[in-house]
Each structure stands twice: as C-alpha cells, then as structure tokens.
C-alpha cells in the first residue's frame, strides 16, 4: 500500500465512484463558464463532457450540462461548491438513472469507396443517421442518441473510412412533468 498523494486523504469513506450528469442553470454573463470550469480544475474534479448554450434569452439563462465522475461525497461536494458561485441559479442531478434522458448529436465524416461506401450507408440506416452532405468519395452523417449509441456508431464507422468526428457532448433533461 503506497502513501496517498494528498497529505490529508479524504477518500477513506468515499465509496465507489459513479458517473453523474449535472444540469447547471446559470445567468448568462461573461465569465460564468470560466467560473464553473475553473471550480472543477481548481478542486480536482473530473469533466467527462461539457455542453453549454443559452436556453432562455429573455431571462439571460444558460444551461451547462457537465458529466462528471466521483464517489457520493465528492458529487455532493461538487454540487455544494457549484452552489457557492453567484451566477449559478440551480444545480440539478439529471443522471440517466433513475430519471434522466440523455442525448448527444454527432457529425461523422466518412471517406471511402466501393463496398465500404455501401456498407457505411447501411450501418447509418440502422443507426437512423442521416447523410447531410455527400461527395463522390465522402459522406457526412448526423446521428443523435445516448452517448453509448454514438460510441457504437463511431466504432462501426472506423473501418469504413471514418476521418473526422464532431460531438456536442451530453445534453440531459429529466423525465416527467416537473421542470428543473
């Protein structure tokens, strides 16, 4: 057993890690994203995915969705620390389990010919991906779905001439009639 890197280990009772998706509703003002991201880097929390856009222009509200990973107490600490940021209005845990809905959008550029080109179109159909641009030697596909589906689609496209991927990162919203 090696000595922990931190002088004062806090992980003794931390428990198993899990992947959490947090929706952070913020005032859309300069620097707000830097505050949120700076908090994660300063305190050593993970960011697996980050998306941000204004969602209510009238109220100047933006929604930041962050996928992070940590033990229960660490996640609680992240939420509490986010709550200290003045332009943060609300932090909601919209993790897939039990009630979150997650979607990502990806754009994939495939460059191939012959049998591979046909195969790429077939796979795209199975994944309900749309071809939104085409040349004689390439396609650009648009695909939406949970991150796992996007991952699977990308994996299948690699041997079929995948040369570029652009992903939005995770968007999440909770099921049911309640708003965040």
């Amino acid at each position: 057993m090696t000595e922990p890197a931190s002088a004062y280990p806090t992980t003794a009772a931390a428990g198993p890690e899990s992947r959490r998706t947090l929706a952070i509703l913020v005032d859309n003002e300069p620097g707000v994203l830097a505050r949120v991201v700076g908090l994660f880097s300063a305190r050593g929390y993970n960011i697996e995915s980050l998306t941000v856009a204004e969602t209510d222009a009238r109220a100047h509200r933006s929604r930041i969705t962050i996928v992070t990973r940590g033990a229960g107490p660490v996640i609680d600490q992240i939420k509490a620390q986010l709550g200290r940021i003045v332009p943060v209005r609300k932090v909601v845990d919209v993790t897939l389990e039990p009630a979150g809905l997650e979607r990502e959008l990806a754009l994939l550029k495939i460059r191939s010919s012959g049998q591979e080109r046909v195969e790429a179109l077939r796979v795209a159909e199975i994944f309900r991906a749309r071809a939104i641009d085409t040349t004689r030697e390439s396609f650009i596909f648009e695909v939406t779905g949970a991150s796992g589906k996007i991952d699977a689609f990308i994996d299948l496209m690699i041997p079929l001439g995948l040369i570029e991927v652009s992903r939005t990162g995770v968007l999440s919203i909770q099921r049911g009639a309640e708003g965040a």
Partner: peptide
Amino acid sequence: MTTMDILCEAP
C-alpha cells in the same frame, strides 16, 4: 431534490 434545489428563481 438535492440541497441545491433550494436556490430559487430570482425575485
């Protein structure tokens, strides 16, 4: 609900 949900809308 999390503890952060108590942060309410702007008055």
